[in-house]
Design a protein around this nucleic acid. Structure first.
Lengths: 348, 348
DNA sequence: CTGTTAGCGCTTTCAC
DNA sequence: GTGAAAGCGCTAACAG
């Protein structure tokens, strides 16, 4: 029976089997070939270890071997399935290379973000993958400064040289615009949120450029900006947009959550989608495909995002490059009922 | 400027300021009063530490102080907002007591679950909070065996003596049943999933008892069981239920995700909710309150779940008790349009 | 007020 | 084939 908390160490095992700590250490780590241990010895050691309830001490190991084979992953948020999918992608490639992952959340709090980052550095992680929080720029920079590579995921930073992996905004917006154009829309509005994020800003800019390239007009009063994380504000903006004399026939939303709220308000206003207003956005989040509101969107490919971020870290590790190769993943357009086909809601 | 990766240790600082490692150690940890250090000395040390880019080594610290003040948190899943809220609750109380949290996910994979648990033990966490995975029972038991307390969250285990914190199934189902009864329903069906989880099983049993207590009939053909994580199966079950001669006027679903899928199918079948069929469930997950389907449900109080789990661990730590006090939290009934008020969908 | 001296549990030369 | 010894970076008695 395992003994409670009474730390069994490698030394105890050595004593038990009348061998040295060295031998035990090798046997326990399966490095028997490195020193040519006899199978019986190895077996005997394993037996004893099990009998005594031995449990290796991660810290002692990390301390002496001076490496942890671990990377820290810091999310701002654990809601939705983003963290799940990103982590999946990260662990898939990192796990394959023998790396362990340390997860944490900042809840969008600056102090928490800094604290978690600091903890990761103290734990001597080999790299960090994070959903960036603009205000903590300097903390990420500090990590890089200390030789711990950082990769941003889902968004990027304009002011720092930290590499990032994001869904290609240009590609995504163009896919949306082309799709809407193809199904006959010429008057396209934009609904975004009041949050100063590089990726969101870029989506907006690309939207404007895209309209021009298609030879469409980009009216200022068709671009609305709701308050962040305030659904009431989204509702209001939708109402304002639709109460204008001159209103668009299609609406591109900055992200799925916003689009889903917009669809809700449109339903309340009894505005038929997509007949009166087609709606499309970016994300393909969990729940964006539902019989009640089936949203045309560009898939963010979050598992791929995770995979690529991990690959960058791996390459940095083995010195494959010291450049900062940001990656932009192109996601597929998912065409659904909010832009084509039967009306989303039964006619009155 | 911080020096890259060239590990600055406490010794380097000591040399720099011509003091002993001990003094430096105390100063750096703010334990100056324990040994009466002069403010100047402390200041000088901090200066030097900053100048050299010193970063404490978590592992070395943990190794010698033989405590980590940390608890491991293992989720089966990171989708939805459950992990977010639970973690919030946990960190709120644990953080207050100086504990750190180590997050991880098993993705419902047995091997991953065991691996993460093992890692936590090797890292010598002081406790573990986990969403149980029935098949890994023995791994949790091993932790307890080694003196590391485990608390289950969100579900429990019938075969082990591990304490748990869950939403009270009896209370929840009764609230649902009473509500439906009050608004006039006498024929109530049940839709669950084919997953052998203690908490889900208990909800079902309580449902049956509850019906009896209300003097209502519990017809076997009103209880349906869909395949786990298979929405098609939920759809089929809803169709089957509603195509019976004799069908209920209300349906209690085992959880919000199931209820939301059911509502989708009901919409397709053009069955009006709540007029023809009222729907209610348990969870109050993100997205259960939406203009398109506003679900009556019992809030799972996930932040509270996290808080309580953390409190149990804390009490175990300081030896307040060695009993296994499982906690059942009573969540409020959230009455929404799927059971009362205007029809969820506009009439045809 | 500060320094000396032991380790924590483990890995890893290097010698036998 | 195996072991002795020297630390990894830090803390904590116990002396001065």
């Amino acid at each position: 029976m395992a003994k409670s908390k009474s730390k069994v160490g490698i030394g105890d095992i050595a004593r038990e089997v009348n061998l040295s700590k060295t031998t035990v250490s090798y046997a326990l780590r399966g490095k028997q070939d490195q020193v040519n241990l006899s199978p019986e010895t190895v077996e005997k050691i394993h037996q004893a270890a099990k009998r005594l309830g031995y449990r290796p001490n991660y810290w002692a190991r990390a301390l002496v071997s001076k490496e942890t084979k671990s990377v820290g992953v810091l999310f701002n948020d654990l809601t939705g399935s983003a963290a799940h999918e990103i982590t999946r992608g990260i662990q898939e490639v990192l796990g394959f290379h023998g790396y362990e992952t340390m997860l944490s959340v900042s809840f969008w709090e600056e102090a928490k973000c800094r604290k978690e980052l600091k903890l990761m550095l103290e734990k001597r992680v080999d790299g960090i993958i994070a959903t960036p929080q603009p205000i903590c720029e300097d903390s990420y920079a500090a990590a890089v400064d200390e030789g711990v590579p950082v990769v941003f995921i889902g968004d990027y930073s304009v002011s720092s040289k930290i590499p990032s992996v994001v869904l290609d905004p240009e590609d995504a917006i163009y896919k949306l615009l082309n799709h809407l154009h193809q199904v006959g829309h010429r008057d396209i509005g934009f609904l975004t949120v009041d949050f100063n994020s590089p990726i969101l800003t870029e989506r907006e800019q690309v939207f404007k450029c895209g309209l021009k390239k298609l030879g469409l007009e980009c009216k200022d009063n068709w671009i609305h900006r709701a308050e962040l994380a305030n659904e009431i504000s989204v509702f209001e903006n939708v109402r304002n947009l639709m109460s204008q004399e001159d209103r668009p026939s299609a609406l591109v939303c900055i992200s799925d959550p916003v689009a889903m709220q917009a669809l809700g308000e449109l339903a309340r206003l009894e505005i038929s989608v997509p007949d009166t207003l087609a709606v499309a956005s970016i994300g393909n989040i969990e729940g964006s495909d539902h019989p009640f509101f089936s949203l045309t969107t560009v898939d963010e490919c979050r598992v791929d995002l995770g995979r690529e971020a991990a690959r960058i870290l791996l390459k940095k590790q083995d010195g494959s490059y010291n450049e900062t190769p940001s990656i932009r993943i192109k996601g597929p357009l998912i065409t659904r009922a909010s832009t084509v086909g039967a009306s989303l809601r039964p006619k009155r």
